[in-house]
Write a protein that binds this DNA or RNA. Structure first.
Length: 202
DNA sequence: TCTTCGATTGTCT
DNA sequence: GACAATCGAAGAA
C-alpha cells in the first residue's frame, strides 16, 4: 500500500491542502476489508473569519476538533441524516478543515456496493454524504487521526493529477455566508473522465 | 426550553 | 425542477 500522508502535509494553509488532496487515496480499514478511493473533489473552510466555516462563531463542542492538531478527521452530522467527512489543517488552535466531497472507488468495491445497494456505481461516492455512507464513516470517527499507518481511516499518497486538470470553483451550499465568501474559488475538482482517473491507478 | 435551519440526498412530478 | 426527510447544534428567550 502507498505511503500514509504525514502530519506535515496537513500543517499548511487549508486552501493549499484542499488542492493537493486531489488525487490522494482515502483508505478505510473495515474489519478484514480494505475500502479505498481516490479523492476527486474537496472544499476548503478557513478559520473564524470565513463565514461559511463552522468555526465562524468561535469554538463550540461541535467544531472543537477543528481547533485541534492537523491531520485529524472532523466528522459532523447534518440535515438529520448525513455524516460529512473533513480533515483538519493548519496550526493547532487555528480552525480550518477540508471537506471531502467526492472520491472514485478503487478498492473494496464489493463492500461499497453493499453499502450503496441499488445505486448505480458512478453515483456511489459522488457526494460528501454519499462517500461516508459508502465507506461506513460516522460520528465515531470524529477526532480520529488520519496519519496513523493501518489506522481505521487514513489518507495515503495516490495518483498525480496534472495541474490543468484541477478546476477551482466557488463552494457549494453556502449562500448564507454572504460575500466575499460565496465567491471564493475554494472548491477543487479533478476535471477528468473516470476512465482517465482509472488509467492512472496502477 | 423553544425555534430555526443546515458544507445533502433521493424521490416524485 | 421542487421538495420532503430528519435531528442535533446553535442562538434566542
Amino acid at each position: 500500500m502507498s505511503r500514509t500522508l504525514s502530519r506535515d502535509f496537513y500543517e499548511r494553509p487549508v486552501v493549499d491542502v484542499a488542492r493537493s488532496l486531489i488525487g490522494k487515496r482515502l483508505v478505510r480499514n473495515l474489519h478484514d476489508d480494505l475500502l479505498a478511493g481516490v479523492i476527486i473533489e474537496t472544499e476548503a473552510y478557513d478559520g473564524e473569519q470565513d463565514r461559511a466555516c463552522h468555526a465562524h462563531r468561535g469554538k463550540t463542542r461541535r467544531n472543537a476538533v477543528m481547533y485541534g492538531p492537523p491531520g485529524c478527521a472532523y466528522v459532523y452530522f447534518t440535515y438529520g441524516l448525513h455524516w460529512l467527512l473533513n480533515c483538519v489543517t493548519g496550526a493547532e488552535d487555528y480552525p480550518a478543515a477540508v471537506l471531502i466531497r467526492a472520491i472514485q472507488p478503487i478498492h473494496g468495491l464489493e463492500v461499497i456496493s453493499q453499502n450503496r445497494a441499488g445505486i448505480a456505481q458512478e453515483l456511489w461516492c459522488n457526494g460528501p454524504a454519499k462517500l461516508t455512507r459508502a465507506l461506513a464513516i460516522d460520528g465515531t470517527f470524529n477526532g480520529c487521526d488520519l496519519c496513523q499507518q493501518n489506522g481505521i481511516l487514513q489518507i495515503t499518497e495516490g495518483i498525480t493529477i496534472p495541474d490543468d486538470k484541477i478546476q477551482a470553483t466557488p463552494r457549494i451550499g453556502i449562500g448564507y455566508a454572504g460575500e466575499p465568501w460565496i465567491s471564493k474559488p475554494w472548491r477543487f475538482e479533478a476535471k477528468m473522465q473516470l476512465a482517465e482517473v482509472n488509467a492512472l491507478i496502477e
